[in-house]
């Protein structure tokens, strides 16, 4: 078989990140497809070498095809480009329970733009806790250079940890979330003990960030190394 074809299939399989048995079946199917295409192109008068490159080009880039053949929602999905989807999703863009990427969406989201229950990032928007340059947590605590959230109502602001805005809709009496609703427990944090507890909780969240960041960076590095090992040219 042509070396170019062999190399292309190797790369596709590398990006699919499937179990050996599944990968072998996919490879057989794609190889059959490409061989037939090459034969057809040769029949049309193309020289063999040109037919091989044309068939590969028409098939799509190895990365596009390989990534598209990944499982829908894997336990761990790490992508160097595009959107990763998985329980743990790592990529330039990531969607998962734990998401880490340039744009991250998940229960726990870490990234330049992070959206989740707990979000950490340059722009972090979260339901419960957000830490970031611009931090929004309409129902929870927001900590950041500009922080907007329920936290400003009595949690973080009382603890003195928030550096940011205290927005009008979070002020008691104006907020649609104030009064007798389920978030009234936040009033506890207005006491001295509550404030201390809040500081402790917030600091522990601050500790989570570098730890999670380290784990995610390590997983991402492993993926780069795996690809680089197969073909150094594939890693930009």
């Amino acid at each position: 078989m042509s070396r170019a074809l062999q190399k292309y299939l190797d790369q596709v399989i590398l990006y699919t990140n499937r179990k050996e048995e599944d990968a072998a079946k996919i490879r057989v199917e794609l190889e059959d497809h490409l061989r037939q295409k090459i034969t057809d192109l040769q029949t049309q008068g193309l020289p063999r070498e040109d037919a091989i490159f044309q068939a590969i080009e028409d098939h799509g880039t190895a990365r596009t095809v390989g990534y598209s053949l990944r499982k829908g929602f894997a336990l761990l999905d790490v992508r160097t480009q595009g959107t990763a989807r998985g329980f743990i999703a790592i990529g330039p863009r990531a969607i998962g329970i734990i998401a880490f990427g340039n744009v991250a969406v998940g229960l726990f989201a870490f990234g330049n733009f992070a959206f989740g229950t707990l979000a950490f990032g340059a722009l972090a928007i979260a339901g419960l806790l957000s830490l970031g340059g611009i931090s929004l947590a309409p129902l929870g605590a927001a900590v950041g250079l500009a922080a907007v959230g329920r936290g400003a109502y009595g949690m973080i602001a009382c603890g003195g940890l928030a550096v940011g805005l205290r927005v009008p809709w979070a002020i008691d009496g104006v907020s649609v979330l104030n009064g007798d609703n389920g978030l009234q427990f936040l009033q506890h944090f207005r006491t001295h003990e509550g404030t201390v507890a809040l500081i402790a909780i917030t600091l522990s969240f601050f500790l989570i960030f570098p730890i999670m960041n380290g784990i995610m960076c390590s997983l991402k590095r492993n993926e780069y190394l795996r690809i680089e090992k197969a073909d150094p040219k594939l890693v930009e």
């Binding site: 596709v12 996919i26 037939q36 098939h59 596009t64 095809v65 598209s68 829908g72």
Partner: peptide, 30 residues
């Protein structure tokens, strides 16, 4: 099978639709 499906699709679409051939497989698996 894969290649024949792509070929048939392109023929029936009269050249208007040109699928990235490798992208048909995720759809078939789905």
């Amino acid at each position: 099978y894969g290649y024949a499906i792509v070929k048939e699709l392109n023929q029936r679409a009269d050249g208007i639709l040109q699928l990235g051939e490798g992208t048909i497989y995720p759809v078939l698996y789905r």
